[in-house]
């Protein structure tokens, strides 16, 4: 069984991702079906004894997987916006990426 850490930590992470991913402003993420489903699932599988609970482990693994999905998609979207989302770069920008500067011609071109 994979090491997953505390379920509460996973739940907190998931809620954070849902908050960050929530759509148009004005609608709180607590109104979404995902929020309600997650809380209900976590509550239903909460066990009070310390015994190993297979169903809880499976749910926790699923939750951790979903957390990984949401987090990676958010990071990827940010990277895409930063580096890939704007089409071709100008020569100056390309040179700047690798730490070069284009030569300046004193007195302008020609």
């Amino acid at each position: 069984m994979a090491a997953l850490g505390s379920p509460l930590r996973t739940l907190r992470g998931l809620l954070r991702e849902l908050r960050l991913a929530s759509g148009p402003p004005g609608r709180p993420y607590r109104d979404t079906a995902a929020y309600r489903h997650l809380l209900a699932a976590f509550r239903a599988h909460r066990v009070t004894s310390e015994k190993l609970c297979r169903a809880q482990q499976e749910l926790h693994f699923q939750a951790a997987t979903y957390l990984c999905l949401l987090r990676s998609v958010r990071h990827l979207a940010a990277l895409h916006r930063e580096y890939h989302g704007r089409g071709e770069r100008s020569p100056e920008e390309v040179a700047g990426l690798v730490g070069f500067r284009l030569p300046q011609q004193p007195g302008g071109k020609g």
């Binding site: 979903y66 999905l69 998609v73 990827l76 580096y83």
Partner: peptide, 28 residues
């Protein structure tokens, strides 16, 4: 290099996680 290595890593993580979740949700 952030725009190559991190980009690939995030993409692979997202795809692997989506596939795994999909399998678990469809087979349980």
């Amino acid at each position: 290099v952030e725009w190559a290595h991190d980009y690939d890593l995030c993409e692979l993580c997202a795809r692997a996680a989506a596939g795994t979740l999909f399998v678990h949700l469809c087979s349980e």
